[in-house]
Design a protein around this nucleic acid. Structure first.
Lengths: 214, 214
DNA sequence: TCGCGAACTGCAACATGTTCTAATTCCGAA
DNA sequence: TTCGGAATTAGAACATGTTGCAGTTCGCGA
């Protein structure tokens, strides 16, 4: 992920970048996404990313610390969009269980719509070092917000800063558990252990277990 | 992990290896563990592993498909030992909740006793490809067995083959959820998101939530 | 004991993430 | 408009996972 000095982490850095720089970053990220879609983690060769986005390798490393950093940035963008969509059109069901199932169904579909990209970012997340903790934390906080909103049947709040914690102790606990199960299932999918459908089933049964004691 | 042709996956291959070969494999694995302990995933340079174990690089690749494969093999050995220990000395508490908390406390302590090694294998697990699914599945089945045993307050069964599923639907569901939370928390620890103590706390609160509805 | 095929060795080679450098270009403040 | 420092570039260089190969050694069946 971007260095403390460089800026792409939208949550944490003042916009100190010229328009031309923002465009470069955009091209880099888009190129990385395209390559990831085409063949997963290994297909994202940074030389190719640099070529495709028309920047030098050194420039890429100016804005991103590592290959994982680029992919983490991309998935965080994706996740921000999901939050906005859920803020606009929250799950409608009357029962909390169903709202949560729908939330994770949407999140899973959204992510795995581009399966190779999804595999790439999952690998990036799993392998990321302490340096990327900020990105991971942002993702986590955003997901927590969506989960708590779905639990309560309220629309998610895309506006207030991520740093503001939401939910009661118990709501946050449930959010954590569901995120762990989701992430871990997705890793299993990415490793070829089971199909996407299994991820959805696991979320459903976990949600029922946690909310209704099974 | 070892190739289908080569044999270190104890659960799945008849012992077709000469003693000298088994010794080589042992030296390779031991060297990898030692290097992992010293500096984590990156410190396990396969050239160094080969040097330290007195085999050629090509030989190493004859028995293991990749760097991850070596580490997965090592962690599976560790996990087999945990199963044996738990079979001999199961958690004693009267309450299922406490037995499970103890199980995960022991498992977590056992793994993170060598923190750098643990970080290395977690990264290997998370990044492993479909080819390693067998190893991962074995780990999963072993953990499931221990969890179901702890749920019931019985000693774990280290003898019957892993392929034999244990537990009711509900027990297996609980086992899956707990494993997901455990794995995912450990990844968070390995990424520097939180300390080991947090992993223990998360397991405790998850177990309480799942067994007692919080 | 002999001879064969498999296992092993040493080493070179390749791919790709990451770093470094010297030269060039760009941009905003004076 | 001009100037100086920051950004960018091209490309080399390095580390390490992985593969390939030619030659050597080992172990086992006849």
């Amino acid at each position: 992920m971007p260095t403390d000095a460089a800026e792409p982490v939208s949550e944490f850095s003042p916009p100190r970048l010229a328009v031309s720089q923002l465009k470069r970053i955009r091209r880099i990220v888009d190129a990385a996404i395209a390559l990831a879609e085409s063949g997963g983690f290994d297909a994202v060769r940074l030389r190719d990313v640099a070529d495709a986005s028309g920047v030098a390798l050194g420039t890429l490393y100016k804005y991103f610390r590592s290959k994982e950093d680029v992919l983490l940035f991309a998935v965080n963008e994706d996740n921000e969009q999901l939050l906005r969509i859920l803020a606009a059109r929250p799950p409608e069901s009357a029962r909390a269980t169903e709202r949560l199932v729908e939330l994770f169904a949407r999140a899973t579909r959204g992510l795995t719509r581009r399966p190779n990209f999804a595999r790439a970012v999952l690998r990036a997340i799993a392998a990321s070092e302490a340096a990327s903790a900020v990105q991971q934390a942002a993702f986590h906080l955003r997901m927590s917000r969506m989960i708590v909103a779905a639990l309560r049947g309220e629309p998610a709040d895309a506006a207030t800063p991520l740093s503001e914690l939401v939910g009661s102790e118990r709501e946050r606990l449930i959010a954590r558990v569901l995120q762990h199960v989701w992430f871990s299932s997705l890793i299993g999918w990415a490793s070829g252990l089971h199909p996407i459908a299994t991820v959805m089933e696991r979320m459903q049964e976990t949600i029922e277990l946690v909310l209704e004691g099974g």
